[in-house]
Design a protein around this nucleic acid. Sequence first.
DNA 1: ATGAAAGCGCTAACAC
DNA 2: GTGTTAGCGCTTTCAT
Lengths: 345, 345
Amino acid sequence: MAQTTRATIKDVAERSGTSITTVSHVLNEVPGKRVSAETRQRVRRAAQDLGYRPNQLAKGLRTQRSQTIGFISDHVLTTPFASRMIAGVQHAAAEAGSLVLLVNSEGDPELGDAQVDALLERQVDGIVYATVYHKLITPPAGLRQAPAVLLDARSTSGTISSVVPDEQAGARAATEELLAAGHRRIGFVNNEEDIPAQLLRLAGYQDALAAYDVAIEPSLEVREYPAAYGGYAGALRLLQSDDRPTALFCATDWMAMGAYQACQDLELRIPDDVSIVGFDDHELVAGSLRPGLTTMALPHYGMGHWAVLALLRQIDNGDSTVQHAVLACPIVRRASVGPPPPCRF
Amino acid sequence: MAQTTRATIKDVAERSGTSITTVSHVLNEVPGKRVSAETRQRVRRAAQDLGYRPNQLAKGLRTQRSQTIGFISDHVLTTPFASRMIAGVQHAAAEAGSLVLLVNSEGDPELGDAQVDALLERQVDGIVYATVYHKLITPPAGLRQAPAVLLDARSTSGTISSVVPDEQAGARAATEELLAAGHRRIGFVNNEEDIPAQLLRLAGYQDALAAYDVAIEPSLEVREYPAAYGGYAGALRLLQSDDRPTALFCATDWMAMGAYQACQDLELRIPDDVSIVGFDDHELVAGSLRPGLTTMALPHYGMGHWAVLALLRQIDNGDSTVQHAVLACPIVRRASVGPPPPCRF
DNA sequence: ATGAAAGCGCTAACAC
DNA sequence: GTGTTAGCGCTTTCAT
């Protein structure tokens, strides 16, 4: 049970027969403050014996640094990706001796303001504001009251640092994976939503085709709701057309899962009859499909990490340059890509 | 940019021409402290004008209550379920005016101790210790230094409150769903790992059979690794036996996904030829399979919520009774269960 | 009805 | 080398 009143620096001072100043000096290893080895010893012992744990609230109050960073999100927590983001944030924070104060606004903007307030009241040293997927947003006003950086989002005003995935390069690499395997008719099952990823992935897809001198054929791009059923519908449409594509690039892994189902219905084998590459590296999905789905990984961990480093730069160096990072999406090769089938008709 | 030094209670006092005591009284609506309506007005105005935000560090230092609860996990963050747990924790905390300080130990016990320390230094009012899945654990020693409750875990010593899902009742309900549909030969694709869920779900499966006077046939239980490939292997074995089961209860949704693949390979239709029920309600999986998977939902949100309420009880009322909650797993019906096929041979 | 002052646990000038 | 002291921003007796 314990829970006896906790030992304070004063207790340590008394037990070691020194002053609290000295205790503070040795425990914080204050540079320039010279304390005799013997005293140091005694203080350490005393602290140890008492199970002394410095009160960070008091320390923070005094130093104006809470060693805490706030993480706020629209509703990131509901997605599996959130984990990787938060892990990145948490690790980077931990490396700097900080902890993460978590909050989420469930997409309610008013709540968002209140949440930012709550964080500010707790004197967080900075705030990371994350969104579920790459978005263009107008961040809560309170964010300007403290160092802040946007994670997987960019502000409409552009006046706040941010980090997002390189959707376009990722889509290009995905498509090139197919082109390199020999495919020339490549369908793109795109997300129908009006979000940055939709445009950027399309651009990347077209970049790749252009790089291989393949003409862009509008009928090869279809847009559907980004879920398995949308992918199913889109893939079906594409694969049932005459002169069907030999490969499909799907805007999300879930859509790719739908494409797999479409192939199954059409009795098309992957990758023998059609090759497929996804996007997101939704590990549980991509890894569970048969055959495993080759896909582009979203750099969630890296973005989380970057966000905190950028934040720390602002906090520590007062560096207020706004920076916009665009992180690469590495390809994750599994088994859904092969050469196109021999000429058929 | 702002970031000008923040307004303090003193500023509010000056601007409103009162003392900080009065400001504190009105802003906190201290009961029993009577302040004239007019003064109250002035104080409120001043606070508003100044954009005053109380410093919770100072408040916490003074009141010995940080209004913060620590959430520590073995490596819960990597799983999609974590979201629901944390959401439950966060919401319950928010209702009590608290925020959540997040930390995770990546399964490293030493790190766990350090993390608990970090939390304690921040003066968290209590700690929720969560695990990825229902486990029996020996919690880090530091946990006894503050009110704490175990989430999705139970301590070997039993001296600390905890909340876990009712695996057995859930498994029983899952099996009964199949029995009620008319099935009598029901295979159980169990998890091979030596964890509470394995035993409890088996017990629930057997409870259900007993309730329907169906003899327990050991050959109908197979154990595999809890992933799609394990489920595939187990289901294949079961479905290839002579006198194969007409229904499968899979210990996890991922295993059920493997079972679907096995059915596909054997050209067995779901639910016409074989009915399947899973466990976990891994929403993205269960909802994405075709047909949708009927499965048991793990009460992650509820457990998170319960954990915090229990914690608050300890903190506020000093109620140190240890309690162990077992929360129901509701069934989520989709489309993978139907009547058994007409007699075949 | 309002205010002065002590003190929560700590750091950082500034003595000695 | 080591100790005294003044706060950080707040709540809370206790006076008035």
